[in-house]
């Protein structure tokens, strides 16, 4: 299957068999096709149930294999200091390639690095976003933020890219200022000022 089965069931990879079973039963209750009346919803529910069943079976059989190339690869850590410093040097090169917009070269180098640090996830996310693969990019940058929550650059990138504001409601730059409405507002303001505060410069409207 192409997705992480634990993610499909909404549980942690360290979850106990009881927790997994409970998550599975909850999912079955929530998405069972019999709950839906319309044919199209039934079809969607059937598809979802298929995913849930496959995920549960994969975990039960203990072969929770999924296509890691897609997006769900768990982070790998290394305690080898020399590998880590070598990786830092290469990642600096990757930053340079990204800066020069050589995204294919940057991706190629990143794919050859086995040590996946927060920086690796961040740079891979930037590369994927530049390729237009936003879902992948979001996953990678989120992973970088999770691994290194104190890093302001990762957090800001995530905020700016994926949690940014949506377009404004009235995004028409040619929205006209209505002169009639403006005139009414000016008259109303003048009348209020005149009525409430006669000392505000004299009684302009003598009848009130």
């Amino acid at each position: 299957m192409s997705q992480n089965p634990y993610k499909v069931l909404g549980v942690e990879e360290t979850a106990s068999p009881e927790e997994i079973k409970k998550a599975y039963t909850d999912m079955v209750k929530k998405y069972h096709p019999d709950r839906f009346k319309e044919d199209y919803m039934k079809e969607l529910a059937e598809q979802k149930m298929k995913e849930v069943n496959e995920a549960y079976d994969a975990i039960q059989k203990g072969n929770a294999y999924y296509d890691r190339s897609r997006s769900e690869e768990p982070p790998r850590y290394s305690t080898d200091r020399s590998a880590r410093s070598e990786s830092i040097g290469t990642l600096r090169d990757v930053r340079m390639y990204i800066h020069n917009r050589s995204f294919s070269k940057a991706r190629e180098i990143l794919q050859s690095i086995s040590l996946r640090t927060a920086e690796w996830y961040y740079l891979m996310g930037i590369v994927e976003v530049n390729y237009g693969n936003y879902d992948q990019g979001k996953y990678y940058i989120n992973q970088a933020v999770t691994m290194d929550p104190g890093n302001a650059e990762y957090r800001e990138a995530y905020q700016q890219l994926f949690a940014g504001t949506i377009f404004s409601h009235n995004a028409n730059p040619y929205r006209q200022h209505d002169p009639a409405q403006a005139c009414c507002q000016v008259c109303l303001a003048a009348w209020c000022l005149d009525a409430c505060c006669e000392c505000g410069g004299g009684d302009f409207i003598t009848c009130c």
Partner: peptide, 12 residues
Amino acid sequence: RTIPCACARIAK
């Protein structure tokens, strides 16, 4: 102008 406005219109 057109592209952001089209996005806003469709998204909302």
